[in-house]
Design a protein around this nucleic acid. Structure first.
Lengths: 150, 150
DNA sequence: TATTGTTATACTCTATAACTATA
DNA sequence: TATAGTTATAGAGTATAACAATA
C-alpha cells in the first residue's frame, strides 16, 4: 500500500468510528445523526428553510420532512418571517437545547474514550491537523456543537 | 471551549467531510456509503449472511435487503454453503470489483484534495494518529479498501 | 419570472417480529 | 432448542417533480 492509500484508509476508518459513536449516542435518545446536526446548526441561528438546507447540504423537500418530524417531537418551531411572507424561520426549543447538550456531552465522552491512547500533546496535534484539513473547505459541514461554519 | 471540546469538534467536522466526500463519489456511481462498505468487506472474503451482518454492524434482515439490491444490480452472488444447508456464501462479482476500484480511486483523490494543505510529514503524522485512535477498537468498521478488520 | 416552501411519489436503509428450514 | 436466512411491516431519510403563494 502506498502512503496515500494508508492515509485514505486511516481517515476512512477514523470517520466510521466517529460516526458510529455519534450514531450510538444519538440513538439512545431516539435521534439520528442528521437530527443532531440539525440541532447543531440551530444552536446559534434561526435560519429559513432554504438556508437550513444549504447548511445541511439537503434539498428543500428533505428539509421539510426533517423539520416536520422534529417539530412533531417538540424540538423545533416554525415562525413566519416578518419581511417575506413566503419564508419560515426555524428555531430550536428549550427541550431541544437540553437534549442537544446531553448528546454532545456523551459524544464528547465517547471521543475521549477513542483518543484515550493518545497523550495530551498528541491530542492537540490531532486537533490541529484535523482543523487544518477542514479549514480548506469553503462550506464546513455543521458539527455537533455548532462551531466552525460561517 | 476546552481542549477536549476542540478535539471533539475537529474530529466531528473531519468525519463529516470525509463521509461527505465518500457519499459524493459513491453517488456518481449510484452507490451508497453502505454499499461501498459492503464491497469493501467482500474484497477479500466470502462470508455468510450472518458474518456479513457482524462485519457491517447490521441486523440480518437489513443484510438480506442490502444483498438483494446489490444482487439485482449484478454486484454480488449468493451460493449455498456446502457444509450447512441453511447458509449462503456472499461473493462480489468481477463487475463489482471493477466498480469498487474506481470508487476507491476517486475517493482517494478526494482525500488527497482534502489533505493538500498538509506537508508529506504532516500527512504521515495524521495517518499514524488516526491509526492509533482506531487500533484501540476491537471490531474495526470495514473501510473502503477492506483493510483493518479481523 | 424567480424564489420559498409543501406535497406526492419513489427508493434506500434500518429494525422488529414472525416465519421456515436446518442443525 | 438454537441458528441461518427471508419476508412483512413500519419508519427515517433522501431526491425529483409538480404545485401554490409571494417576491
Amino acid at each position: 500500500m502506498t502512503e496515500t492509500d494508508e492515509l485514505v484508509d486511516a481517515l476512512a476508518q477514523l470517520s466510521f468510528a466517529v460516526t458510529a459513536a455519534l450514531t450510538e449516542v444519538a440513538g439512545r435518545y431516539d435521534m439520528s445523526v442528521v437530527q443532531v446536526r440539525l440541532l447543531g446548526v440551530l444552536r446559534d441561528r434561526e435560519p429559513s428553510m432554504s438556508a437550513l438546507g444549504r447548511h445541511l447540504g439537503l434539498d428543500k423537500s428533505s428539509v421539510s420532512g426533517l423539520v416536520d418530524r422534529a417539530q412533531r417531537r417538540g424540538l423545533i418551531t416554525r415562525t413566519p418571517s416578518p419581511t417575506d411572507r413566503r419564508s419560515q424561520h426555524v428555531a430550536m426549543t428549550g427541550a431541544a437545547r437540553a437534549l442537544a447538550t446531553r448528546v454532545a456531552d456523551e459524544f464528547a465522552g465517547r471521543v475521549d474514550d477513542l483518543t484515550a491512547g493518545l497523550s495530551a500533546e498528541e491530542r492537540r496535534l490531532l486537533t490541529a491537523l484535523a482543523n487544518r484539513v477542514v479549514s480548506g473547505l469553503s462550506e464546513s459541514p455543521a458539527a455537533v456543537r455548532g462551531a466552525g461554519d460561517h
